[in-house]
Nucleic acid binder design. Structure first.
Length: 944
RNA sequence: GCUCGAGUGGUGGAAUUGGUAGACACGUUGGACUUAAAAUCCAAUGGCCAUUAUGGCCGUGCGGGUUCAAGUCCCGCCUCGAGUACCA
């Protein structure tokens, strides 16, 4: 009887589905364990072999934990809102919901084939109204909250209103946007309700504001910083420009410090923590206010706030630079400079992010004609604008210290601005001196003779004394723009009365996505929801009604933007705990039982997107008392990408002639991707298949070397356009899902990127066949087990294996554990083992890796219940080391003798011990050891 | 530029806390079985030298260092990869 994986795998899929084997029960007596995968976006291309890598690893862990007696939650769902479905809808008119549904079906089929132990009863889809009801609900909670810096916690907005009524906003001003005017309680009461709402928006955790955004004209939408790679959009690679727009934003900056601090609470890869730390970009310094010198045009002195990490260099300031987009630029520019300034602003606005980046070295700027007064020297310093100052960082203005900052230095050189030196015995004729604390200050009045640390402290004290500055921590992290001008996303539960946003009552949720005729923006440039005809809010009936009915009394326009992709993914992990609950995001019982994710597996590419935003929302829900933990994922593993090995043919330029790789030499050729299925494992192209591939290749001249066409190879990301995609369905068809699972784990460490190579799968496939034969050692390959006592050697092999596998799984070293299995089965095969007491634990042991095969064997061993419920074998190693003082070890066939000595021994005792063992060694080895190496507290290794 | 990570056979990769480098697998070569192929099994497989087996020397990107002992620790380089970037 042969190993018929097809029969076995389909049999057990059906069995698991029918029995509901992997259903997680909330509130079980067992301890819980929550294993989570990052849910996929169901794209039209289906899965390639790279996608399941993380799912296989998490499935192994989930199954292992079940065997260890845990009640495991291992859910799966779909992040089903997104651009590709919408782009497809724009092109074909097909509703994104239909495309999404089709894609999900295909994903599900593929996932099922691989034998994952997901609890599909808990599936969530972000585009499902029953799901996004709760995304909208969280949005409303954010709108109804502000951030209390004193308590370091999100608080209900009503508390803030009470504060305003009592004492105005002076005490809570730090909790709002910069430049929020200070008002008294009296003023608050005198404000119109619209003015009050306007002020509150500056405090709310999600707010509507004019923000400088990354606008992608080609995609017709704004993008968040993490959606832009090298100045172009992540999706599509289109240029991005900066533009001011009224947008919803999330006040994630309020949580910046906690997002940093709480990284210490989680067991995440250091590289990922570093990425988040850099992204948040904390820098310590001071904010300093400079006042402008009144001019004919601007008779009042204007305050300009700057942020600096080097307040100690304040006596080195010889000019100021503002970003061209800075609010005050036009106000302070003098009449004679106005034309030039306006022109400069216009030019830099036109330059895309990409131009600006590719052109970093070009120094440009103009003088505004205005001067600022130095807070201490009272000297007049010129105010310039320059695009090396970014509007979005700090205050969009800098105090320029050319002797201490290279950019300021170059700017000063370029425009002939003086470069005063304030560093003792440092040469600044060639470049700025940016070292901190290696020298002391000179020409710096009260800071003379001080080094960085003391000078910084001193200058901040002085600035505070004259009320022109204070110590400040600045973050690179910016508030996250939350509006997208797209159709296929969550609608906002927001309607507008007199231009002010109002929340739809919570019990009216969800506000469902309306039908539209066209998925493109309207002709007037409104987002696609502007095409919806039934998209207005009736406050008296509390329903969505036709736009035509909009009046000033009870029917109001609804928000036309939709939420970004990360909205739906920021809380899905908690929703899995109670996915069908229609009265709450999840029940108190569910969250109390499941608590938080114990293991989260997913790609590192989400480091500064999803993984940051979801932490932010979790902290917010924590402040609200809805979730019990500040962090939602205790342990996180980033699986590495599986790459494709692309194949290339080389076409000589301006010809239709293709040269085999070896013939290219120094000829000018264009490499062209060719489908990897036309190429065999020795890089030889199937010329016939290549000719049939495309009409233009049919008649091509093909030059061979040694009768073969050899292709070029390159490791790249798997992608349809590179023709290097390997489909898991084909692998399952040929070798089975168990072999695919094993092989993906065997390829290398889970966290590492590695190229796929189908040829290597034969190793794990023949291992599975060997394992099968171990259970089918009867005549004619019939199933056969003996109930006799197994030989001691076999037990030793088994227990060695159990120990190693357990350690490997706990350390996520899945690749080495596959090797361990291979060694184990090889040893047992050569011992001709067919004993129940060996084979039974072995099948439990292997079941996380090859669940179908293990289940089949378990069943053949006479068990009716699924192997999923079997306990992982306990390790009984006692006979491995019979005398834990000395034991021979066979290594590579050579005999070795190891003595373990206690840590506490001194030199003499060690020598004694070695001498005592000497006889045994001599007897065993038959000769005298060459070297005796002794180190206290270590293993004594006698190399014979 | 800054931050992080990685360099080990023909290939993917092992190597616990510093303790026999190259486990396991692919590939290659030879052999068995077969009319033949597939499948399966056995053997060899880092380099150089030697041989009657026992052996010897060199080897973990490069150069130093610490140590009885270094792929592993320290210092200085080189190369590659990832992230980030006019961040004041």
């Amino acid at each position: 009887m042969n190993y018929n994986f097809k029969e076995i795998e389909s049999k057990w899929h059906a069995y698991w589905a029918e029995k509901g084997t992997f259903k997680a029960v909330t509130g079980s007596e067992k301890s819980k364990f929550y294993v989570l995968d990052m849910f996929p976006y169901p794209s039209g291309a289906g899965l390639h072999v790279g996608h399941p890598l993380g799912y296989i690893a998490s499935d192994i862990y989930a199954r292992y934990k079940r065997h260890k007696g845990f009640n495991v939650l291992h859910p799966m769902g779909y992040d089903s809102f997104g651009l590709p479905a919408e782009q497809y809808a724009i092109q074909t008119g097909q509703h994104p919901a239909i495309t999404t549904e089709t894609n999900i079906k295909r994903y599900r089929e593929q996932l099922d084939k691989l034998g994952f132990s997901f609890d599909w009863d808990r599936e969530v889809r972000t585009s499902n109204p029953q799901y996004y009801k709760w995304t909208q609900w969280i949005f409303i909670q954010l709108f109804n909250s502000w951030y209390d810096k004193d308590k370091d916690s999100a608080r209900p907005i009503q508390e803030l209103i009470d504060v305003f009524k009592e004492e105005g906003n002076s005490m809570v001003n730090a909790c709002s946007d910069e430049n929020t005017p200070i008002i008294s309680a009296k003023t608050w009461k005198e404000m119109s309700s619209q003015q009050q709402q306007q002020l509150l928006l500056k405090y709310r955790l999600t707010y509507l504001a004019d923000t400088e955004v990354n606008w992608c004209p080609k995609l017709g939408t704004v993008l968040a910083n993490d959606e832009i790679i090298n100045g172009v959009s992540e999706r599509g690679g289109f240029p991005v420009v900066r533009k001011k727009m009224t947008q919803w934003s999330m006040r994630i900056t309020a949580f910046a410090q906690r997002l940093l601090d709480d990284l210490s609470l989680v067991d995440w890869p250091q590289s990922l923590k570093d990425a988040q730390t850099n992204w948040i970009g904390r820098s310590v310094g001071a904010s300093v206010t400079f006042y402008t010198k009144p001019t004919a045009k601007q008779t009042q002195s204007l305050p300009i706030n700057v942020f600096t990490t080097r307040p100690d260099t304040i006596f080195g300031v010889s000019f100021m630079t503002l970003a061209p987009e800075h609010d005050l630029v036009l106000q302070l520019t003098t009449a004679d400079r106005e034309e030039e300034v306006r022109e400069y602003i216009a030019v830099s606005a036109k330059r895309s992010e990409r131009d600006r980046m590719s052109d970093v070295k070009r120094i440009s700027g103009v003088f505004t004609g205005a001067y600022a007064i130095h807070p201490f020297t009272k000297e007049c310093i010129p105010i310039w604008i320059g695009d090396y100052v970014l509007a979005g960082y700090g205050t969009g203005a800098v105090m320029s210290v050319p002797c201490g900052d290279q950019r300021d230095f170059e700017f000063a050189k370029n425009f002939d601005i003086p470069i005063p030196n304030i560093f003792n015995e440092v040469d600044i004729s060639e470049e700025a001196y940016a070292e901190k604390g290696k020298t002391t200050l000179v020409n710096s009045s009260f800071l003379d003779g001080l080094a960085f640390k003391q000078a910084t402290k001193k200058v901040i004290e002085e600035l505070e004394a004259i009320e022109q500055g204070k110590g400040k921590v600045n973050y690179r992290l910016r508030d996250a723009v939350f509006s997208r001008q797209r159709y296929w996303g969550e609608p906002f539960p927001v309607y507008y009365v007199n231009g002010m946003p109002n929340m739809v009552p919570e019990d009216c949720l969800p506000i469902e996505l309306p039908e539209v005729e066209k998925y493109l923006p309207t002709e007037t440039g409104e987002p696609p929801l502007g095409n919806a005809t039934v998209w207005a809010w009736n406050t008296s009936t509390e329903t969505v009604v036709d736009n035509k009915l909009i009046d000033e009394e009870t029917i109001f326009p609804l928000e036309l933007n939709t939420m970004p992709g990360w909205a739906g993914s920021s809380q899905y992990f908690n929703r899995y705990m109670d996915p069908k609950n229609n009265d709450a995001i999840f029940s108190k019982e569910a969250i109390a039982y499941w608590q938080q994710v114990d293991l989260y597996i997913g790609g590192v590419e989400h480091a500064t997107g999803h993984l940051l935003y979801s932490r932010f929302w979790q902290k917010f829900l924590f402040d609200l008392g809805i979730v019990p933990h500040k962090e939602y994922a205790v342990k996180l593993i980033n699986q590495g990408m599986i790459l494709g090995t692309s194949a290339f043919v080389y076409r000589e330029v301006n010809t239709n002639k293709f040269l085999s790789k070896g013939l290219v030499k120094d000829k000018e050729v264009i490499p062209i991707h060719v489908d990897v299925s036309f190429v065999n494992s020795s890089d030889e192209l199937n010329v016939e298949a290549f000719r049939n591939w495309r009409p233009e290749f049919a008649k091509a001249e093909i030059e061979l070397e040694n009768g073969k066409y050899i292709v070029g190879r390159e490791v790249e990301k798997m992608s349809k356009s590179k023709y290097n995609v390997v489909n898991p369905d084909e692998i399952c068809e040929e070798y089975g899902a168990d072999a695919l699972r094993l092989y993906e784990m065997f390829l290398g460490p889970i966290e590492q990127a590695k190229p796929w190579n189908t040829a290597g799968i034969s190793g794990v496939y023949s291992f599975l066949k060997k394992l099968w034969r171990l259970f089918h050692s009867g005549s004619d390959g019939q199933f056969y087990v003996s109930d006799d006592e197994p030989p001691k050697e076999a037990l030793k092999t088994l227990h060695k294996t159990i120990k190693k596998i357990e350690e490997d799984i706990e350390h996520f070293s899945f690749n080495t554990s596959v090797s361990t299995f291979m060694i184990c089965v090889n040893e047992l095969s050569s011992l001709k083992i067919c004993h129940r007491s060996i084979l039974e634990p072995l099948s439990i042991l292997i079941s996380p890796y090859a669940p179908h095969l293990a289940e089949e064997l378990w069943n053949k061993l006479g068990h009716q219940e699924s192997i999923a419920y079997a306990s992982f074998p306990e390790f009984i190693a006692s006979h491995l080391v019979e005398d834990n003082k000395q034991y021979p070890v066979s290594f590579n066939g050579k005999m070795r003798f190891v003595i373990e000595l206690p840590l506490s021994m001194n030199k003499e005792q060690i020598e004694d011990a070695v001498m005592k063992h000497q006889k045994t060694i001599d007897q065993l080895q038959g000769r005298v050891p060459k070297r005796v190496i002794v180190v206290p507290g270590k293993i004594v290794n006698i190399v014979g």
